[in-house]
Computed example of a mutant assay.
Amino acid sequence: MALFFDAEWFDARLAERGLSRQVLAAAAGMSAADLALAFKDQRELSAGEVAAFAELLGVEAREVADRAGVSTPAPGHPSPTEARLAALERRVAALEAEIARLRRS
């Protein structure tokens, strides 16, 4: 993860698509002032803003989060703890199904 907002990277992606910062702000539902704070690393992006940036720029949300210095997980990418919990929940569900099947036998 980048420690700071990588304004040069975002500006380059915008330039590749012929877009402006104003379009980026509008796509994310942000004011120009909020976007300026993010570009100056004085405001962290929300998960929804990360997702909107990713869609507009045609990159993965994880890339946007990394380039923005976002400390919270990007949308669609569970934290290691969330992934482990989901795996355990699947195992418990499978065990419960097996117990139910054995009881019917």
Rank of each mutant, 00 (worst) to 15 (best):
V23D: 13
R43V: 09
L95K: 13
A38L: 01
G76W: 05
E16S: 15
A94H: 07
A74S: 07
G69C: 13
R103Q: 15
S79C: 05
A86E: 15
D66T: 00
R91G: 09
L45N: 02
V59S: 05
L57W: 01
M30K: 04
A54W: 08
L88P: 01
R104S: 13
R43P: 11
F5S: 12
R17K: 14
L19E: 03
K40P: 03
L45M: 05
L57I: 02
F10C: 11
P78H: 04
A65D: 11
V50C: 05
R67Q: 08
D6C: 02
A28I: 01
S79P: 04
P75T: 07
V23C: 08
R67Y: 00
H77A: 09
S46D: 01
G29N: 06
D11E: 14
A32G: 15
D6Q: 06
M30A: 14
A97S: 15
A28E: 06
A38R: 00
D6A: 04
V50G: 01
D66L: 00
E44C: 05
A100G: 13
K40I: 01
W9D: 07
G76E: 07
E63M: 04
R101Q: 07
F39A: 10
A26K: 09
T81H: 03
A2Q: 14
A15T: 03
M1W: 11
V64K: 11
E49N: 04
A7T: 02
L24W: 01
E55T: 06
L102E: 10
V23H: 10
A52D: 12
S105W: 09
A74H: 06
T72V: 00
E82V: 04
A54V: 03
A97H: 15
A86F: 11
R103C: 11
G48F: 03
P75Q: 08
R91C: 08
L57P: 01
A36G: 14
A86C: 09
A47L: 04
L37R: 15
L88D: 01
W9G: 06
V59M: 09
A54E: 07
A7L: 07
E44G: 10
A27L: 00
P78F: 04
A47N: 08
A36K: 12
F5N: 10
G18I: 07
D41Y: 05
G76N: 06
A93Q: 15
A27Q: 06
S71V: 02
E44V: 05
T72A: 00
P73A: 04
A52Q: 07
A52R: 06
A32P: 11
L88R: 01
A7E: 09
R21A: 12
A52E: 09
V59L: 10
E89R: 11
F4Y: 13
L37Y: 12
A100C: 10
A7M: 06
F39R: 12
L19N: 01
G48K: 00
T81C: 02
A94I: 05
G69I: 09
L85E: 12
A26R: 03
F53V: 09
E63K: 02
L37H: 15
R21S: 13
G29T: 00
H77E: 14
V70P: 00
E96V: 09
L102A: 12
S20N: 03
V70A: 13
R91V: 07
E60W: 04
R90V: 12
F39V: 05
R91Y: 06
R84I: 03
